[in-house]
Design a protein around this nucleic acid. Sequence first.
DNA 1: GTCGCGATTGTCT
DNA 2: GACAATCGCGACC
Length: 204
Amino acid sequence: MKWRAIAIYTPIDKLFFEAPVLELARNLLGQYIVHKQPEGDIVVRIVETEAYHGPEDRAAHSFDNRRTKRTEIMFGTAGLIYTYQMHTHTLMNVVSGAIGTPHAILIRAGEPVVGLELIQENRGHHLKMTDWTNGPGKLSKALGVTMKYYGHHWTDEPLFIAAGAAPEEIVAGPRVGIGNSGEAVHYPWRFYEKDSPYVSKYRP
DNA sequence: GTCGCGATTGTCT
DNA sequence: GACAATCGCGACC
């Protein structure tokens, strides 16, 4: 019988999210983000993340245990979805750390895997494929993710993380777009797959 | 190709 | 009323 592999995407085990934040930021690379929608499924492979080590990290929204309506979710259990609005864009985070410890990981870029037509519709037909998901705002737009997922969990449909394979080589470097954060500007807490054309452009 | 600017909206002081 | 974990575009090399 001739057959081809059809990947069945199912939510990853909740234990996956219990790793320390820097480790989890690395572990997220190569996993899949799945968004099930009436029009069809969209799947993107994660190629870039950034760890935010609240409350000690000046660049984190939860620095010094700042607890507001916006940051509240980060004090919850690991694996929750923290969405944040930046200008007109939605940014997706994975909550990390024990309850009461507000760590989070920003998912910055991905590689389109399934639902390419839907992604193209979401992003615009004039763009090159490498510009569909190479930034945190672009990634959310491509997946059709909005603020309504704030507080959901990354193991619950219709938006969940599914197990993939780790990249061959991971690069660590300083994070992007956090200008006035003192020493924290230099922490090498951005991780990405080496040589991936889908990684966001670095802006000092 | 790279660089600089301004849009635009939720959130917090 | 200021600011932001960004993006897209236009100017220029």
